[in-house]
């Protein structure tokens, strides 16, 4: 029986990938929850270097309810404690994962784009496959499909680093040492807006990611991210 036969159990995810996935999942959920708590302290977003109550806000955010914030009851100091501690777990976790993924060739094997991944016809076919709940290539079921690759690449190499860089730009201490952070984003309040917008995109990714995990078979997918073992599904 070859490794692509439906029903075969294969090792889908390396230990480093699995470890980082869960450390990161916990960190990101805590960062989003505590971040919404911090947002409640001043739920207005601005562009530029400054921005306060008398200045024009491009967005007035809702007050985020207790069930989604950390802590549940508004407490800016404690939200910041959670946010800043897990910002370190998140940032250094991502750094470690990236280093290991270069060394163990996880990126090269799983995420490197091939000709098909940039072909419009193939991408269109991949979208159709997703609507038909076909997520795996029968010839190489363990490989990520094109949309999956693109979304992981955008999240890993654009959105998550963007969260770290815009977050650092909010630190008055970092701004003194690395003023280019401000130039990069067009000022601290722009960085704050981009921090929020990118966090929203990360939140949207999580929703789609969890939905697709459920559609692809929650049990099999969850097991593969815990033990590594993944059963090749029926095509």
């Amino acid at each position: 029986m070859d490794a692509n036969t439906p029903g075969t159990s294969i090792v889908r995810h390396a230990l480093a990938t699995r470890l980082w996935h869960w450390v990161n999942a916990v960190s990101v959920v805590i960062l989003l929850g505590s971040g919404l708590g911090i947002s409640n302290a001043h739920p207005r977003l601005y562009w530029g270097r400054y921005g306060a109550n008398f200045d024009h806000a491009w967005a007035q955010l809702p007050r985020f309810p207790a069930w989604i914030t950390i802590p549940a009851n508004y407490n800016l100091a404690i939200s910041r404690r959670w946010h800043l501690l897990f910002a370190l777990v998140f940032a250094f976790g991502l750094l470690g994962y990236m280093i290991v993924s270069l060394i163990n060739r996880h990126f090269a094997r799983k995420l490197a784009l091939r000709r098909a991944d940039v072909s419009p016809a193939h991408l269109a076919a991949d979208v159709r496959d997703h609507f038909n709940l076909r997520f795996h290539d029968a010839d190489d079921p363990a490989a990520y499909n094109s949309l999956q690759k693109w979304s992981y690449i955008l999240v890993l190499f654009v959105a998550l680093p963007m969260m770290i860089a815009t977050g650092l730009a909010l630190s008055p201490g970092m701004d003194a040492a690395w003023p280019w952070l401000l130039d990069l984003f067009g000022g601290r309040q722009s960085a704050r807006s981009l921090h929020f917008v990118t966090a929203t995109l990360v939140g949207a990714f999580i929703v789609v990611h969890v939905a697709l995990v459920i559609l692809a078979g929650a049990g099999n997918e969850l097991r593969s991210m815990i033990t590594g073992k993944w059963k090749v599904p029926e095509a």
């Binding site: 805590i30 989604i68 950390i70 802590p71």
Partner: peptide, 20 residues
């Protein structure tokens, strides 16, 4: 398992206050 997956995040948020 499905509910575990989606409830996980909710439990994590609620658990944070207990942990703190």
């Amino acid at each position: 398992r499905r509910s575990l997956l989606t409830a996980g995040a909710g439990l994590l948020l609620a658990g944070c206050d207990k942990v703190a």
